[in-house]
């Protein structure tokens, strides 16, 4: 009898959960810890988790997360902003250098009139003496197409326009 009572007390002590007879709903502490964690997360940003009656489909957030990751981190078609392309930067730089270079060279290159201005009269005469210039070329340069090629005409022209004394002095 005494032994039976002792066994009952032992069983009671072993089985009791030190709550003084109070009980809790099944899995209460699991759901409570989840609830506390949600509240802690929310409190970090000052949020609460009231949703005002709105519902979402099962596993919605897991599926949505996967969709977002597929469109971003797992996307094969990598999004590269146009303005970040190294090739474009290099090409732009090269084009810019070419334009600047062309303008620079063009600005320092002497014009034909500048070249002629720097050549002395004697140099031109020497050059012309060494060069065999045809009558056609002279006609072309001075723009007189009606210039006569006949010797008689030339003599006549010289008689009329050239002072013989002056010519003799020069010679």
């Amino acid at each position: 009898m005494l032994n039976n009572e002792e066994d009952n007390i032992d069983n009671y002590i072993k089985n009791k959960n030190n709550q003084g007879g109070f009980t809790t709903p099944d899995d209460y502490f699991v759901s409570m810890s989840k609830s506390i964690l949600l509240k802690i997360e929310g409190k970090q940003l000052g949020f609460e988790t009231r949703q005002g009656g709105f519902m979402i489909p099962d596993s919605f957030f897991e599926n949505q997360k996967q969709i977002i990751l597929n469109q971003t981190t797992h996307s094969k078609a990598k999004i590269i902003p146009f303005y970040n392309k190294m090739a474009l930067k290099v090409a732009s730089m090269a084009a810019m250098l070419m334009i600047v270079g062309f303008l620079f060279v063009h600005s320092i290159a002497p014009k034909n009139t500048d070249i002629l201005a720097n050549i002395s009269g004697d140099e031109i005469i020497n050059h012309l003496e060494k060069t065999d210039i045809s009558e056609e070329l002279i006609c072309e340069v001075i723009g007189q197409n009606n210039f006569s090629k006949k010797d008689t005409d030339l003599e006549k022209y010289l008689d009329e326009h050239v002072d013989e004394d002056l010519l003799i002095d020069d010679l």
Binding site: E41, L45, F47, Q51, F54, I56, F61, Q64, K65, I68, L69, T72, T73
Partner: peptide
């Protein structure tokens, strides 16, 4: 990015919803 998603996804969804 996964961490950002884990932390903000639900809050952003409910805000938008």
């Amino acid at each position: 990015f996964v961490k950002i998603l884990d932390f903000y996804q639900k809050r952003v969804y409910w805000h938008v919803r």
